[in-house]
């Protein structure tokens, strides 16, 4: 058992005998010392989605799932295809990649973790830090190398994020996949 506030997106909890994948878990402070967790859940078996609330210390039954190392191979509409270490192909629906979709791009070499419920892949986790190349950003402001001023940059797959103003088109940047934030410019 875990408390509602300990449950992380991607984990699976059992409700009335069915496995539900936690897609989002938001924490809100109510009055006095109470706190509330609002979760977005997806039923692994039938795909139904719902939203729920729990007291932060409500105890929830969660299940530990099998994981496998995989790398992204290609997109075969509407499935994303990954390959495991034994070159077995694994197909995953777009909805199950919700938290990482913005970082999926052709040619990526990140070693990811595919999470299984039985034989079904229910999510893919990226490494905490990944490196991506900037496809487009406005030219840098002259003279500012402090990194405190930010601007928007676009990755190859169209995802946009805030980066330091000194970053240029073609630069490689490190991104924290848990927060979605730019961390630093890296050399390649």
């Amino acid at each position: 058992m875990k408390t509602a506030q300990e449950i992380k997106p991607g984990q699976v909890i059992m409700i009335d005998g069915s496995p539900w994948k936690v897609q989002k878990n938001e924490f809100n402070r109510a009055g006095r010392s109470s706190a509330i967790n609002k979760m977005k859940l997806k039923n692994i078996l039938n795909g139904m989605q719902t939203e729920t609330t729990f007291k932060c210390d409500d105890k929830l039954e969660y299940i530990v799932l099998e994981q496998k190392e995989v790398t992204y191979s290609y997109f075969a509409d509407p499935m994303y295809v990954f390959v495991d270490t034994e070159y077995e192909q694994i197909e995953i629906e777009k909805d199950d990649l919700e938290n990482v979709l913005m970082y999926i791009e052709d040619g990526m070499e990140d070693v990811c973790q595919a999470v299984f419920y039985g034989t079904k892949v229910i999510s893919v986790d990226l490494p905490k830090n990944i490196v991506r190349q900037i496809a487009y950003t406005e030219p840098s402001a002259r003279g500012d190398t402090s990194g405190k001023v930010t601007k928007i940059a676009r990755l190859a797959n169209g995802h946009e994020l805030q980066v330091s103003s000194f970053c240029e088109i073609g630069d490689y940047i490190e991104i924290d996949t848990l927060t979605g934030e730019y961390k630093s410019r890296v050399k390649r």
Binding site: E26, S34, I36, K38, T53, K55
Partner: peptide
């Protein structure tokens, strides 16, 4: 729950637990 005017209250009101 406690009374609050915060925006998240509307999003959580009436949700199942």
């Amino acid at each position: 729950e406690y009374l609050s005017a915060e925006a998240w209250v509307k999003e959580c009101h009436g949700l199942p637990s």
